[in-house]
Design a protein around this nucleic acid. Structure first.
Lengths: 266, 266
DNA sequence: TCTCTTTTCCGTACGTCGTACTGAATTCTG
DNA sequence: CAGAATTCAGTACGACGTACGGAAAAGAGA
C-alpha cells in the first residue's frame, strides 16, 4: 500500500494545495495569460476588478453583485465567471488592488516615523476605499500588494530591536487601531449597510430615545461629555491620538527591556 | 400658514423620530405588552431573540435567516414578524442581549484596573458570541445593556481626570483594540464567513503560494519571524499586551498634562 | 481550406434570502 | 353574540450566487 501516493514531501509546488487555491494565487500574482484558442475576450481581469471597485465606490459594497458588475461592463452576468471564480474571489482581488496604492516609508527614518507613516497610509486607504472595512471578515488575501506592505510594516517595527513576538503584536496593534477608527467613522458617515439611510436619518428616527428612556441620572458621564461637546470628534485626530499613545507605550517597553537586557554593543 | 405644524420644539417624546424608530426603542427597553385582543402569542420576544442567538451559535451568523430562526422555534417564517420588525432589528436585539452579560468593575479600584476589567469583559464577550464582530457594520444599538456598559466605561476613564475629548478617545481606543484582536482571532479560528471551510483548509488550499511566489529575498522579515515561530500567537496574550502598551501610553499622557497644568489641590 | 478542439459569452434555472400581501383563525370588547 | 383586533402562516416577488448547457468564435492540424 501507499505506493501510489508517496508520503515524502512533494517537491513540485504546482501540485500543492487545491486547484481552486492555485487558480486564485495565479490571478493575484500573474497577469492572466490571453489563452490561444477560443474567441477573444471582450474584457481584461483588470477591467473586471476595476468595475467592481467602481460599483463599490458608487453604490456601496452591498450593491457589489455579479449582476451589477456585469451591467457596469455591459456584459452578461455569467460572463464574469470566465475572468473570476466567483464573487468572493473578485472581492479578494479588489482588496489587493486597494493595497497597491500604499506608499512605503523612507527606510532611513527612525522606526517611529516609519510606523506612523504606515498608519497614515492605512488611514488614507480606508478613506479612499471604505468598503475595505468589510475585508475584516475575510482572510488576508495572499496578494503581492498586501504582502509587500505587510513585509514593510514588519521590517519597520523590527527596527525597534524588540523580540519577534513583540514585533508581531505591535504591528497588529497599529493595524487594529487604524482599522478601528476607520470602522467607527465609516459606519457613522456612509450609508447604512443594509437600508439606505444616512447616519443623520438613523439618529433622527430613533430620537424618541432621548426623551423617554435616556435620563441624566442613569447616564451622568455621557451627559456631561455630551454637554461638553466632546462627542463631536474629528476623525483624523483620533488616528493620531491613539497612535501617539500606542507608540509611547511601545517606546516605554523598549526602554524597559533595554534596562533589563542591556545591549552588549552599547 | 404653519398653524397646524408648529415649528416650536415638540415637547412630547412619544412623537419624536419615526414610528419605526420608536417601535425599535420600545422593543429594546420595554417588555412587549401582551396586547389584549387577538389570539394568544405562541412565543415571547425573548424566545425569538434567544432562538436567533442559538442559530448564530450553532451554525454561524450567516445562517441567521428568518426561516432558520422560525424553524428553530417550530413556527412559520412570517410569524416572526409579529415579534420583530425584521432581520436587522432581530440582530440589534441580539447584540444588546449579548452585552447584558458584561460585568462592571468595582468602582473603588484604580482607573487602570477598571479599564482593564472592561477590556477583559469585552474580550470574553467576543469569545462567547463571535458573531458580534459583525456588529461593527451596524450602528451601536441604543439598548439598555449596551448603554449601561458604555456609560460605565466612560465613567471609569473619567477617573483619569483627562479632559473629555481625551476620555472619549481613550475609551474608543480600548474598544477598538479588543475588537481588533477578536476579529483576527475569530476570522482565523471559526469557519469562513461564506464558504464553510476552516482556516487550516484555507491555508492548505493556497499552499502553492509558498512554493511559487514567496521567496525569502522578497520577504526577509516575514521569513525570519516565521522561522522564529513568533507568528504562532496566543490570543489572550495579545489582548493583554496591547492593553498594557496602550494604557502605559495613557498614563504617560496623564503625567505630561499634570506637569503642564498642575492640579491646584495638590 | 475544412474540420476539430478549445474557449468565450450568456440565457435559463435552482435554491437561497428578506419580506409584502392576503386570508383564515382566534380572542377580547361592546 | 356580532364586530373588531390581532396572530399565524402560505404564497409570491425580486434580489442574490452560481451550476449547467448551448451557441458562437477562433486557432490548430489535416
Amino acid at each position: 500500500m501507499n505506493d501510489e501516493k508517496p508520503t515524502v514531501p512533494d517537491t513540485d509546488p504546482s501540485t500543492w494545495g487545491t486547484p481552486e487555491g492555485r487558480h486564485m494565487i495565479r490571478l493575484l500574482w500573474d497577469p492572466p495569460t490571453p489563452a490561444g484558442r477560443g474567441p477573444k475576450q471582450k474584457l481584461t481581469l483588470d477591467q473586471v476588478v476595476e468595475a467592481g471597485m467602481a460599483v463599490a465606490a458608487a453604490e456601496g459594497i452591498d450593491k457589489l453583485s455579479m449582476r451589477n458588475v456585469a451591467a457596469q461592463l455591459g456584459v452578461g452576468a455569467m460572463s464574469l465567471y470566465t475572468y473570476v471564480p466567483g464573487r468572493d474571489e473578485l472581492f479578494e482581488l479588489m482588496i489587493d488592488r486597494a493595497w497597491a496604492a500604499r506608499k512605503l516609508p523612507d527606510q532611513s527614518l527612525p522606526w517611529r516615523e516609519q510606523v506612523e507613516l504606515h498608519a497614515r497610509e492605512a488611514w488614507r486607504m480606508y478613506q479612499s476605499y471604505p468598503w475595505l472595512i468589510r475585508s475584516n471578515l475575510w482572510r488576508m488575501p495572499l496578494g503581492p500588494h498586501v504582502m509587500d506592505v505587510q513585509e514593510d510594516i514588519y521590517r519597520a517595527v523590527t527596527l525597534t530591536d524588540l523580540p519577534y513576538p513583540e514585533v508581531v503584536r505591535v504591528a497588529g496593534l497599529v493595524e487594529s487601531h487604524v482599522f478601528g477608527v476607520a470602522r467607527s467613522v465609516i459606519t457613522d458617515t456612509s450609508l447604512s449597510s443594509n437600508t439606505g439611510i444616512t447616519a443623520d436619518e438613523y439618529w433622527e428616527s430613533r430620537s424618541s430615545f432621548w426623551g423617554t428612556y435616556y435620563t441624566p441620572e442613569r447616564f451622568p458621564t455621557m451627559t456631561a461629555i455630551w454637554e461638553s461637546g466632546a462627542f463631536e470628534r474629528s476623525a483624523g485626530d483620533e488616528v493620531e491620538f491613539g497612535l501617539a499613545r500606542l507608540l509611547d507605550g511601545v517606546e516605554l517597553l523598549i526602554e524597559r527591556l533595554a534596562v533589563s537586557h542591556p545591549s552588549p554593543v552599547e
